[in-house]
Amino acid sequence: MQTRHGKAYVPGMMWATLQTDAYASVILRRVVTFLGVPDDVAAGVAKRMERQQVHYDGEHHYDVILDEQALYTNVGGPEVMRGQMERLLSDLDLSSLHLGILPTTTEVGVVPMPGFNMYDGQRVHYELVSSGVDVTDPDEVALHDRAFAALSSAASYGDAAGDLISKALAFWSKG
Rank of each mutant, 00 (worst) to 15 (best):
Arg82Ile: 02
His125Thr: 12
Gly83Phe: 06
Gly158Asp: 14
Ala42Tyr: 04
Gly100Glu: 00
Thr104Val: 14
Gly162Ser: 05
Gly100Asp: 00
Trp172Asn: 04
Pro138Thr: 08
Arg4Phe: 10
Arg123Ala: 05
Val108Arg: 05
Val10Ala: 02
Ser166Val: 06
Gly121Met: 07
Ala155Val: 08
Leu143Phe: 12
Ala43Lys: 13
Asp63Glu: 15
Val111Met: 12
Asp93Glu: 10
Phe148Ile: 05
His125Lys: 14
Val10His: 02
Ala16Met: 11
Asp21Glu: 13
Leu35Thr: 09
Thr136Asn: 06
Tyr157Asp: 03
Leu71Pro: 05
Ala42Cys: 07
His98Val: 10
Lys7Phe: 06
Arg48Thr: 13
Met1Lys: 13
Leu164Met: 02
Gln52Glu: 09
His144Asn: 10
Arg30Pro: 15
His61Ile: 08
Val133Arg: 06
Ala150Tyr: 08
Pro138Ala: 05
Gly77Ile: 00
Leu169Ser: 10
Pro114Ser: 09
Gly12Gln: 10
Arg146Met: 11
Asp57Ile: 10
Leu92Ser: 02
Ala150Val: 07
Gly100Met: 01
Gly100Asn: 00
Ala42Met: 09
Ser95Arg: 13
Ser156His: 14
Ala8Leu: 01
Val26Ile: 06
Gly132Arg: 05
Val26Met: 00
Gly162Asp: 08
Asp120Ile: 05
Ala147Thr: 11
Ala150Met: 11
Gly121Trp: 03
Pro138Cys: 04
Lys7His: 09
Gly109Leu: 12
Asp134Tyr: 12
Tyr126Asp: 00
Ser152Glu: 15
Ser152Tyr: 06
